[in-house]
Nucleic acid binder design. Sequence first.
DNA 1: AGGAAGATCTACT
DNA 2: GTAGATCTTCCTA
Length: 192
Amino acid sequence: MHGALPREFYIDDPAEVARRLLGKVVVRKLGSTLLSGRIVETEAYYGYKDPASRAFKGRKVYNSSMFEEQGRLFIYMVHSYWLLNIVAHPEGKVGAVLLRALEPLEGIPAMKVNRGVEEVRDLMRGPGRLTRALNVINDLNGLDITDVKCPLVIIDNGSDVEKIGESHRIGVTSDLPLKLRFYVEGSRFVSR
DNA sequence: AGGAAGATCTACT
DNA sequence: GTAGATCTTCCTA
């Protein structure tokens, strides 16, 4: 099964969507340049009841996309890096999936320029690194990635993930008693 | 208007 | 393994 993932793909518990996104491919269109990478690491975030979530303290201007339609982008900044999330939750809920690491596929020379590093392994190994590599900033916030006109889409290229690893989320000050980080076991491109 | 926090990264020892 | 850079948003006044 090929092509862009439909909205229904994102209408589910964020942890489920986070698992299902592993192995899918992010395609970033920059004019005539095409950058892409395979998702190898994700994290799930919930709404009001998740102390690590940007939605924990309620709806604000900057986090409003997280409360909206599934399949939209939610981008926000921490420590001078933009982080890339996909809005995902059951109908009527709030949640998102953070993309934490991608395995570079197409457009590697451009990624090296964007990142200022040569080492392919380090191009998108980390949530702040991958947005730099793909030239993602908050002007993409709120865009609908199920729309073919979107300059960033996620497709299924049919590749399967052998085994999914789980751990607690990274870098959060107060985590839930759940393992909400998911990664492709054995991949060299996960952040740790 | 000012200070502090944060889902990070890099460079250094 | 630890320190410092970085910058947007929030909170208090």
